[in-house]
Amino acid sequence: MVTQKIMVRICMGTACFVQGGADLLLYGDFLDSELQQRIEVEGVSCLGCCKEHQRGLRPPYVQIGEQLHAEVDQTKFILLIKEALDA
């Protein structure tokens, strides 16, 4: 069975990078290789969510498939990817 890879876009804008985005770039180390094979990671210079803090959301932002997630750290990143793959 050929499954489609899920697109994961990590925001690399200044605000996201200094508030945890940089840690997510180490996905090659903290994410199971089996999960890694099922996703396609792309860096984005800015997801344009910088003003979302007005709604109580905080960086770093990650877009998994079509869904946008805020305040993503390494643990949350793994969980979100598992969830997206199971869905």
């Binding site: 690399m12 804008g13 990078f17 940089a22 770039l25 860096g43």
Partner: peptide, 17 residues
């Protein structure tokens, strides 16, 4: 189009595009 180069980064500097 802008394409990010995920290899060119260090711990305090985000990647180039």
């Amino acid at each position: 189009p802008l394409k990010m180069d995920m290899k060119s980064w260090s711990k305090d500097i985000p990647p180039c595009s």
